[in-house]
């Protein structure tokens, strides 16, 4: 089932659901359709009192969620014995980037009205913005080199090394979230725990691999990211 083209299409559509929600709310805010119809009641049960807040949080949350899901693919393949999950890793990572770009756009447009003087001040001075910005910038090379062609061009080893930048992005995203909450740190703490678990899994695996490799020098094992 994981191999089917249909599964991939369904996953793709699911990944677009937050965007559809965002688009529906945006449309409802701007066009005020007759919202008494049942369709609207389900899509947009209530208009957000603060649209900037709503869009920033929706896009920020999904950027971080997609990063966590992307990072979970490798352990899940092993733990569930489902190697075909690898097919979803690239689209999931790209969706993290997609929502990250929408998050940035919300900030640039609604929060700052493209006042680049103010934006620069924010990026330079406010550490939660600085680190969020860094997290997104680090995703750019990963998005650009996510194709099969680039894997070939870079070579598997080097490509994998480059794509470890996602660890830094995820960590930076968590710190960004921790720095921006006012006092209730439960959600950033939850994401911190998830990201820590996913990274520690990799660390443990790499140590295991190394000890196995040194004990059986002649038997090379395939590299895992």
């Amino acid at each position: 089932m994981l191999k089917s083209r249909w599964t991939k299409a369904v996953v793709f559509l699911l990944c677009l659901a937050p965007f559809a929600h965002l688009a529906a709310v945006l449309f409802a805010c701007l066009e005020q359709p007759d919202m008494s119809s049942p369709v609207w009641r389900i899509l947009v049960p209530a208009l957000p009192p603060n649209p900037l807040d709503f869009f920033t949080h929706l896009t920020g949350d999904w950027t971080l969620r997609f990063l966590v899901i992307t990072l979970a693919i490798t352990p899940l393949r092993k733990l569930l014995g489902l190697p075909d999950l690898i097919r979803f890793r690239r689209p999931l990572g790209l969706f993290a980037f997609f929502y990250g770009c929408l998050h940035l756009l919300t900030y640039l447009w609604f929060d700052k009205l493209f006042d680049f003087h103010e934006i620069w001040k924010d990026v330079a001075r406010r550490r939660f913005i600085t680190i969020g910005f860094a997290a997104l910038v680090l995703m750019i090379p990963l998005a650009l080199t996510s194709t099969k062609g680039w894997i070939r061009r870079l070579g598997g080893k080097r490509w994998q090394l480059l794509h470890r930048l996602i660890y830094v992005t995820a960590l930076a995203g968590v710190v960004h979230y921790y720095w921006l909450v006012k006092s209730d740190i439960r959600l950033p703490a939850l994401y911190a725990a998830l990201v820590a678990a996913l990274l520690l899994y990799r660390l443990a695996m790499s140590i295991l691999r190394r000890t196995r490799q040194s004990s059986a020098v002649s038997k090379p094992t395939p590299v895992e990211s």
């Binding site: 805010c29 957000p48 009192p49 603060n50 649209p51 900037l52 609604f110 700052k112 009205l113």
Partner: peptide, 10 residues
């Protein structure tokens, strides 16, 4: 500031 429910902090 953003005068709610405006989108913009203008």
């Amino acid at each position: 500031e953003q005068r709610l429910p405006s989108f913009f902090k203008n």
